[in-house]
């Protein structure tokens, strides 16, 4: 049997909102250690890696490893039926055809059950090598979302240049160009407002706006986002999910033809 319970469905609701633009379906690998999802978007340009540790759940039981193929659109619809304060329980039997989502209101007076059919999926699992990145930037996630949105008006791609002094975002298009520079924070009163740059060597990489704007849908999950970059390797855009895990987005850089 598999059963995982969260005291508040808000986290799971936010996780679904953070992946639904990129993924139509995904396999949820459930084991004793937790739930893992690794899936690419349809165009195979980006990869989403989600990790929810079992110890972060209020109740977690997984008698045997399960691979459950889920339709992300349906799952998003189901999670939207839960109130943020509802308790959510995911339940499946061994060799399941279905997964059950159970929402219970705080006063325990409303109990909703949604059963979703699982799908058989050919899955391609990718090994992600351990990488030491040239630049690792931590910055407020809302600021990153704002920059991606603002610069998307000017072009289809954003160039990110990172040096010791700061991080510069540039977009250029037919109507003009724009750039936004953020300096490393000297002294931040609040940790979540800080811009912190850990640089081994400067990098300059260009990424498609479309994907960055999908990644920032994870903004409600965490006040800070971590961007890890090295020359000619995928960007890693990471959001912590409370004390339970993280979501990482990998995006291949654009290259000159």
């Amino acid at each position: 049997m598999f059963e995982a319970r969260l005291a508040q469905s808000a986290i799971l609701k936010k996780v679904l909102e953070a992946v639904k633009d990129l993924l139509t379906e995904a396999t949820f690998e459930c084991s004793d250690s937790g739930i893992q999802v690794q899936a690419m978007d349809n165009a195979h340009v980006s990869l989403v890696s989600l990790n929810l540790r079992s110890d972060g759940f209020d109740k977690y039981r997984c008698d045997r490893n399960l691979s459950m193929g889920m339709n992300i659109g349906t799952m998003t619809k189901i999670l939207r039926c839960a109130s943020s304060e509802d308790t959510v329980t995911l339940r499946a039997w061994d060799n399941p055809d279905n997964i059950i989502f159970i929402f219970e209101s705080q006063n325990k007076e409303k109990l909703s059950e949604y059963e979703m059919k699982l799908i058989n999926m050919d899955q391609e699992h990718l090994g992600i090598p351990e990488t030491v990145y040239s630049c690792v930037v931590k910055m407020p996630s809302q600021e990153f979302a704002r920059i991606c949105k603002d610069l998307s008006q000017f072009g289809e791609a954003i160039t990110i240049a990172c040096s010791k002094e700061g991080i510069k975002f540039t977009a250029a298009g037919d109507y003009g160009n724009a750039n936004i520079k953020l300096a490393q924070t000297a002294e931040a009163d609040k940790e979540e407002e800080a811009v912190i740059i850990d640089m081994q060597e400067p990098v300059k990489l260009t990424f498609a706006c479309r994907y960055l704007n999908s990644f920032v849908k994870a903004t409600p999950l965490c006040a800070q986002v971590k961007l890890s970059m090295s020359g000619d390797v995928p960007l890693v855009c990471e959001y912590q999910i409370g004390d339970i895990g993280h979501i990482r987005y990998y995006l291949a850089p654009k290259i000159d033809d």
Partner: peptide, 13 residues
């Protein structure tokens, strides 16, 4: 500019 597939950066397991 062109876009490489993410699969070209990682190994299939």
């Amino acid at each position: 500019m062109s876009q490489r597939s993410i699969t070209s950066f990682f190994t299939r397991t």
